[in-house]
Amino acid sequence: MKRFLPRVIGWCLLFLMCAALLSQLTLHPEEGNSPLREYYAVADKTDVVFLGASQVFCGVSPTELYEEYGISSFDMANGNQYMSMDYFLIREILRVSSPSLIVLDVSTVNRAPESSDWSHRQYLATMKFSPLWWEAYQATRVEGETALSYLFPVLRYHDRWNEMSWHSTPSWQGSRPAGQMLYGRIVPQAETTEYPFVDDGQTTTVEESHLKWLKKIIELCQAEEQPLLLVKVPGKAEGWSAQVANTVLQVCESYGEPLLDLDRRLEEVGVDMQLHTLDGSAHLNMYGAQALSRWLGGYLRQNYEIPDRRGQQEYEQLWQPILKSYHALWDQQEAQPQGM
């Protein structure tokens, strides 16, 4: 037994080393590319955080907000980022920073609360390990996933050999200024598309398991005295309708929170779905994002106490490279428009 145990320990260590090596070899290049990783670096210089799914990273431009109003903001948004993950992200944001305002897009409220595997995977892979991490993992884990796979990603990506493509994809750093994704493509809304929604004053049933996370977010922000703005970013989001909007409005009102439903204020915002959408009204393109952000900046300045950071050295140091990258991407998209 005296010789056996050290041998066992030795082989176990060798196995762990091999598993770590295989983890590096099979690691998906996008694994760590979540907005959260970027946010950790700018958390103390961010006054407004926007949360939501693709409607947010397409439709809200932190760069325009900074250029026009000096608002230092960040898009914490990923494709299929559902409200369960939004809740944990807000807790993490409040753990590491104290933003003046959190803006939450409620477009995803009527989708199944189970997060998409990929979106939550990226966030959990970049979230710092803490009891909150464990809670977020438990709430959002998908079938077949193990917590150990975050330590040894080979458990999650072991079958990447099956794809036979080992090329790495570049990090989104630099390609998403402050979390925004710029798309220059214009695909006008078709005549047959029913948008904006016709409000018949009716509500609909949204499953409590779906609404739960919205309620938890409101309760959390109220308990923490964290200013929260609930917004519906323009766009024909999946699972959204005028009836859902009315239902969500009722929930918000029951908590004394307003809902800024921008689907109903398209003209005022200046969004035109013949020019400002990249896919026929589901998502705004960069022109739409510019229009929306310029209007939103004015709204935030009027209604919230958000400082103008322009001219402050540390903010300029942060924002100048972002502005540069934003304008370069803008020019690139204008020359060669692309969509999602």
């Binding site: 041998r7 030795g10 082989w11 060798l14 196995f15 091999c18 598993a19 295989l22 099979t26 595997d117 998908v142 079938e143 077949g144 996933e145 193990t146 796979s149 080979v154 458990l155 999650r156 072991h158 079958d159 050999w161």
Partner: peptide, 23 residues
């Protein structure tokens, strides 16, 4: 030891388990 290591690594890398597979 080498046989154990090989079996464990082969199962780890080539096994059908985890997300996307039904346990």
């Amino acid at each position: 030891g080498a046989v154990c290591l090989l079996l464990a690594l082969a199962s780890l890398l080539f096994g059908a388990y985890g997300v996307g597979y039904n346990a």
